[in-house]
Each structure stands twice: as C-alpha cells, then as structure tokens.
C-alpha cells in the first residue's frame, strides 16, 4: 500500500511535468520533458554514477563525522554548566551564519577535494544533531532522576544508564534530519569549488545549456537523498523506540 501510493504520487508528478512541457511548448534547453530526461539519464548513466559516487562518499563521511562530533558536544554540554555557558552561545551563533557563505572559505582552507565538502556537510548537520541530542539529555523525566538519587547513583552512571538511553529517541530524530541536510551541504561545497560530484555535474551541464543532463543529475541527487533518509530511518528505528 505504501509503495503503491508512492508510485501513484510519482506518476502524478510526472504527468504534471509532462503536461506543463506540452502545454507551454517550452524548448528542450529551458524545460525538458520527463522522457527526454530519462533518455539522457540512461545515455549518461556511467558519468552520473561516477559523480554520484563522489557525492555519496562526501555525504556519508560528513554524516558520520557530524554525528560523532554532535554527540560528543551534546554530552559535554549536558555534563557541565561551564560548557553550557561558554559553548552554547557560540553554537547558536554558528547556526545563525549562513553556511553557504562559509563554503568559499572552506574551499580556501581545505582545498578543492573531498574534505571541503565533508566539512560543509558536517557544518550543516552538526547543529541539528547537537541540539536534538542535548535537548533529549536535558529532558530526562524527573522521576527517574529522583529514583536514581535515592539509589545513591553516581552522576556518571545516571548519564550512562538513564539520561543517554532516555535521549536516544531525540538523537534519532536529529539523525533523520541530518540525513536530509547532509547532501545539501555537500552539493553546496561542490558548487563553490570542485571538479567532481553531482553538484559539479549540475553546474557543468547548466553552463553548457544541457538542461536535460542537469535534470538527470538533480533527480539522481533527489533519489539518493530519499534512499539515505530511508536507510537512516531504518537504522535508527530501535533507538527511536518505534516498536516500543
């Protein structure tokens, strides 16, 4: 049923797309129809796959590094008042800066290759991971903490046995958000400076008026992002307590 409704929604979208192309009679280099894009995709499948692989590597590394950093930061913040006073405003400030504006700087610092894109993905997901996990850690049900206190629990074991498990659903929702954001970060990085990746391919195709290839690359990115989200969703199902 879920697959059927997804299929129906896809067909519906394709229908509207084709309808606009037919009704307006826009030329191929402005708005190619779905059939043209599909054909271009198939002809360029190896080219697209090669670039998609690069982007995928950037995103997955970014996701892993960003999650680890976010989890460590949230734990430090939850554990120490000093960390909260010193670091929390900085964290909000970095989020207030448009990450897009940092992209040229990161390319300058980290070069044209993989790491500037990984850094972009990390930057964009670091805050949602940190803040969702931190919120979870700070919202432990008061009754659990009372009980732990009457049991003479140490701060450390309360964190390990109660606060962290109680915060895992929040972390899971942060990770699910991150799975959607991370590809955006990587692609922005590629736009600003790179010679590889789906973002680069989209710019290249656009510059040469190959709008059909641009669409093919973009849709590939979209499908990749959805798949990533589904994988992360499944991987975090136990953490989120979906079956609980």
């Amino acid at each position: 049923m879920r697959y059927l409704s997804a299929l129906a929604a896809t067909l519906f979208a394709l229908l509207i797309w084709q309808g606009i192309v037919t009704l307006t009679g826009l030329p191929k280099f402005i708005l190619p129809g779905p059939a043209v894009v599909a054909e271009t995709w198939w002809q360029n499948r190896w080219l697209i796959a090669e670039h998609a692989w690069i982007t995928a590597v950037e995103v997955v590394i970014g996701l892993a590094v960003g999650t680890v950093l976010g989890v460590i930061t949230a734990l430090q913040l939850a554990n120490s008042r000093a960390a909260r006073v010193l670091v929390q405003p900085m964290l909000v400030f970095t989020q207030a800066l448009p990450v897009f504006a940092l992209a040229p700087l990161l390319t300058l610092w980290l070069g044209y290759g993989l790491w500037s894109k990984v850094a972009m993905a990390v930057l964009i997901i670091y805050f949602p991971i940190t803040s969702s996990f931190f919120d979870g850690l700070m919202r432990t049900p008061a009754g659990f903490l009372d009980l732990a206190r009457t049991m003479q629990a140490s701060k450390r074991s309360v964190l390990w046995y109660i606060r962290i498990p109680a915060a895992l659903p929040s972390l899971a929702s942060g990770m699910r958000l991150a799975a959607v954001y991370a590809p955006i970060g990587a692609v922005i990085g590629e736009w600003v400076g790179s010679s590889q990746g789906l973002g680069y391919l989209m710019l290249l195709a656009n510059g040469r008026a190959k709008t059909d290839l641009m669409f093919a690359a973009m849709l590939t990115l979209g499908v990749f992002s959805i798949l990533l989200h589904m994988i992360v969703r499944r991987a975090t199902a136990r953490m989120a307590g979906d079956g609980r």
Partner: peptide, 24 residues
C-alpha cells in the same frame, strides 16, 4: 512513587536490579 518509574528500554529483570547497576 505513583508513577512506577520503570525504564521503558530495560527488561523487567534489569529494572529490578537497577539500583546495584547505578551504584556500579
């Protein structure tokens, strides 16, 4: 307390022995 305060992610056996675990 009125709320049983059982940890929802832990089994019955783990919940019963929570105190020792919290004290290491």
């Amino acid at each position: 307390a009125q709320d049983d305060l059982l940890l929802p992610w832990a089994t019955v056996a783990q919940n019963v022995s929570l105190g020792a675990r919290l004290r290491g």
